[in-house]
Nucleic acid binder design. Structure first.
Lengths: 114, 114
DNA sequence: ATCTATTGCTTGCAATATCAAGCAAAGCTA
DNA sequence: TAGCTTTGCTTGATATTGCAAGCAATAGAT
């Protein structure tokens, strides 16, 4: 019943980067990132979300939506996601949990060559 | 180098409502609203901005931009404003200060009949 | 003139965002 | 085995959001 914490963690691991690497590139402290990924943060500021969105190459609006901020075009159907829109369209609507799982699998695949 | 405080105050006064009336209709405390209008608040949360945007009938994105949050379509030209877009287009680009002034004049006009 | 309600404002407080510093476990390297 | 580094995490501190309560000034009503 936590939240988007796992999502951020899955995102990072799918990229195979460390907390400190994210810190270096975004300016967000590894301490905070850790709390973020373990669900100890309620609503990270838009500023922080923006940095993460850029680093992870996901939609800023989507992150805003995920943490519960109101978004301009508040449709019931989320607009864009980490797993490419194309994939999403082919897969049809997927749930949050499914997305996390896909990301974890992505990580597995990417790590298979090393 | 104050901020958007005056803008919110001008907005409210142009509508001729009290702090407590805004509180009643938005759920944002009059205490906080007062601080907001006197520049004692740095970055009100998107949640709060959204409530105010709805009440004042201005663009939520525009408010986000005004308080310094990153916005999806970060163009150098602000998208929409309190004074109708149409008016804006006719007037051409207007500055923040000009906008506040226009709102104050709006207030004057509206209050002339009472 | 006195009481009452309204209005804007200040203040103290709880919750939260965010970080710097440090810690334990795990991995290298010699 | 002993050291050095990396990694994720916890903790203490600081800043800020946002509110409840209360205060001073003003306006109305009687």
């Amino acid at each position: 019943m936590d939240g988007y914490g796992q999502y951020f963690k899955a995102l990072r691991e799918s990229k195979g980067v460390t907390l400190r690497e994210v810190e270096r590139q975004t300016g967000v402290s590894n301490a905070y990132l850790s709390q973020l990924e373990s669900g100890k943060v309620k609503q990270p500021s838009p500023n922080t979300l923006y940095k993460l969105a850029q680093f992870y190459q996901v939609s800023y609006e989507m992150l805003m939506e995920k943490v519960g901020y109101p978004v301009p075009k508040s449709s019931t159907v989320p607009k864009d996601h980490s797993v490419s829109s194309a994939a999403k369209n082919k897969l049809g609507g997927i749930s949050h949990e499914e997305e996390v799982e896909l990301l974890q699998y992505l990580k597995f695949i990417r790590n298979r060559m090393s």
